[in-house]
Design a protein around this nucleic acid. Structure first.
Length: 569
RNA sequence: CGGGAUGUAGCGCAGCUUGGUAGCGCGCAUGGUUCGGGACCAUGAGGUCGCAGGUUCAAAUCCUGUCAUCCCGACCA
């Protein structure tokens, strides 16, 4: 491809709206342009990268025996009403009506549709198992689109759905996807964790997320370098040890604490650390008022709370609700004589001795409080966030926490959708059984952004060979030298005929501009045709290396082919 | 949805306090000189200052509303 003819512009300056490297570089390198918040148009260079990633995904999916189909993105409401998700998705769903007032949405995901497709075709256990997938555009009206393509309202997803006759079969199907996902992200050149994940509103049993290690990720991952354990922080269980266990239980005492409300103020007032306090937070969980107790320096894990109550909505209570429950101003809540539907105590608190709590009376706290003796919970459970240094749930050593970009997510759905939608088969005994399902998603655009996050420097993108829009760029140092143009053209033609993807920078620009653009768009190999062409030499440079080498023009094609085959082996 | 910020040429920005003919850099076009890490000179094109009201002789500038965009938080199969 001659760059003089390519639809392509780079930006010298970073657009002010872009915050993170991948977003900045996708705009600067001319991969895409914004159409509206969270909606992007892909230009030739960006489209080629998307295609490369899609093709890797397709190859690995096909290897597992999964079969590609294509469902519509425009979906009738009735299917979503069958599972109740027309309302569950709520405003996240782009909804619309046709001329006859029939309701539709733009598909945010496709469980219902694949289940419908399958229930219409499958009658017998003999037809199971199988796995169907598609690579298709999804629509979600995100509350807050963010970071370019990282969280967008329109995005390309590979979604796969497995259909088995029993749970053992699902385990096999799930493992195949798990392995395929590892192969895909390995091929994309990504460093990632496979983490235990919460199944959330998708329902189902096991779930793993594929998290690319990156500071700009939106999710937090607790991981253990010793044993390899990794989990989404919202999922990771806390292993609690008894605290102050060797202390004798002291006598409970009411203390006047005027205007001392927050944990910080308490720490100052009592002159002890936050670990000696237990805070009582009031939540609204669906229609219940729930008091939640945990150590003063800990954080509530809303996901764990939500799962504990199998609730659809969890939020902090408003001031009135708190004052009704405690009979005191906000800041003095405690478990004794509290008026709530349920009292939940973090299991760490149940292990503490002689701690300080609010007295449910404005201006007072209790000290030397002990669980069991002074109050009792309706539920004792793990409801806090795991923190750096907490015990690894698997091996007990201290965990670390880092951020990750979720590029893939796999679920064992079980019968959630097949039962709701009556997708059944007849087993060996002629009995009707629900099909056992799994679902498996990869965000294609987000994967591209994640690759850039892990593969860039201050000059631009550094594409891995597997996903680069072109393998090699030939820079003509001096366009006005016919000898250089001719040599570059012949290298271009030879490489192209060997199946290599080549950019030829024949633009009427100075060499510096071409070098900078080549670095910005991140082509992994660069051939410079310059003065040394008179001696039959060209220059070869890799984007990821600082130094370059002179190569005889007769060897350059083989040099390029060697590099590619070494890397894509 | 709560909090914060920003909308002036394709991109990056100044001008607004104190109302008076819309500017700078980059990019773009033409000509010339240059030519291996974002050249230089000259000439030029390009903007209803997000939009709608209002105040005023006069609004990019002041007021009201509205839309859009970004960030933090909440939320998120």
């Amino acid at each position: 491809m001659k760059m003089s003819e390519m639809f392509f512009t780079t930006l010298r300056e970073t657009p002010s709206e872009a915050e993170i490297p991948s977003h900045q570089l996708m705009l600067r390198a001319g991969l895409m342009r914004k159409l509206a918040s969270g909606i992007y148009n892909y230009l030739p260079l960006g489209k080629r990268v998307l295609k490369k990633v899609e093709e890797i995904v397709r190859e690995e999916m096909d290897k597992t025996g999964a079969q590609e189909i294509l469902a519509s993105a425009l979906l009738p409401a009735e299917l979503w009403r069958e599972t109740g998700r027309w309302d569950v998705f709520g405003p996240e769903m782009f909804k619309l009506k046709d001329r006859n007032e029939r309701e539709f949405c733009l598909g945010p995901t496709h469980e219902e549709i694949f289940t419908d497709i399958v229930r219409n075709e499958i009658k017998s256990y003999k037809q199971l198992p199988f796995n169907l997938y598609q690579i298709q555009t999804k629509y979600r009206d995100e509350k807050r689109p963010r970071f370019g393509v990282m969280r967008s309202r329109e995005f390309i997803m590979k979604d796969a759905y497995s259909f088995d006759k029993d749970w053992d079969g699902l385990d096999v199907s799930y493992k195949k996807m798990y392995d395929a996902y590892c192969a895909i992200f390995d091929r994309c050149g990504l460093k990632y964790w496979v983490v235990d994940a919460d199944t959330g509103a998708m329902g189902g049993k096991d779930s793993n997320e594929f998290m690319v290690q990156s500071d700009v990720g939106e999710a937090e991952v607790a991981y253990c370098d010793e044993c390899g354990y990794a989990a989404n922080v919202e999922k990771a269980p806390c292993v609690n040890r008894p605290i102050h266990i060797d202390e004798a239980e002291k006598e409970i005492k009411k203390v006047s604490t005027p205007d001392v409300k927050t944990v910080d103020e308490l720490v100052h007032f009592f002159n002890v650390t936050a670990e000696r306090f237990v805070k009582t937070l009031i939540y609204l969980i669906d229609d219940k008022v729930v008091a939640v107790m945990l150590r003063g320096d800990r954080e509530v894990n809303v996901t764990k709370l939500q799962n504990l109550f199998k609730a659809s909505d969890v939020q902090m209570a408003d001031r009135n609700t708190v004052e009704n429950a405690t009979g005191a101003e906000v800041g003095f809540a405690g478990p004794i004589d509290i008026n709530v539907d349920a009292l939940v105590v973090d299991d760490e608190v149940a292990n503490m001795k002689n701690f300080i709590i609010g007295a449910n009376e404005t201006g007072y706290h209790y000290e030397n409080v002990n669980y069991g003796r002074d109050f009792k919970a309706d539920i004792v459970a793990d409801i806090r966030n795991i923190e750096v240094g907490d015990a690894c749930p698997k091996c007990g050593r201290p965990v670390s926490i880092a951020r990750g970009i979720e590029v893939g997510h796999i679920f064992k759905l079980g019968t959630k959708y097949s039962e709701a939608m009556d997708a059944t088969y007849l087993d060996e005994n002629g009995q009707e059984q629900p099909i056992i399902m799994g679902c498996y998603g990869i965000g294609i655009n987000r994967t591209v952004a994640a690759i850039i996050e892990q593969h860039h420097d201050d000059k631009g993108i550094i594409w891995p060979m597997s996903v680069t829009p072109y393998h090699v760029i030939i820079v003509v140092a001096s366009n006005y030298q016919p000898e250089q143009i001719q040599a570059a053209q012949s290298i271009h033609d030879e490489l192209t005929s060997r199946g290599i993807e080549v950019l030829l920078d024949d633009r009427d620009e100075r060499a510096g501009v071409k070098f900078n653009d080549a670095d910005l768009i991140g082509i992994p190999m660069r051939i410079t045709v310059g003065k040394k062409i008179s001696g039959g030499m060209v220059e070869f440079k890799r984007r990821d290396k600082a130094d370059s080498m002179d190569v005889p023009i007769s060897d350059i094609v083989n040099k390029v082919i060697d590099e590619i085959s070494r890397e894509l082996k």
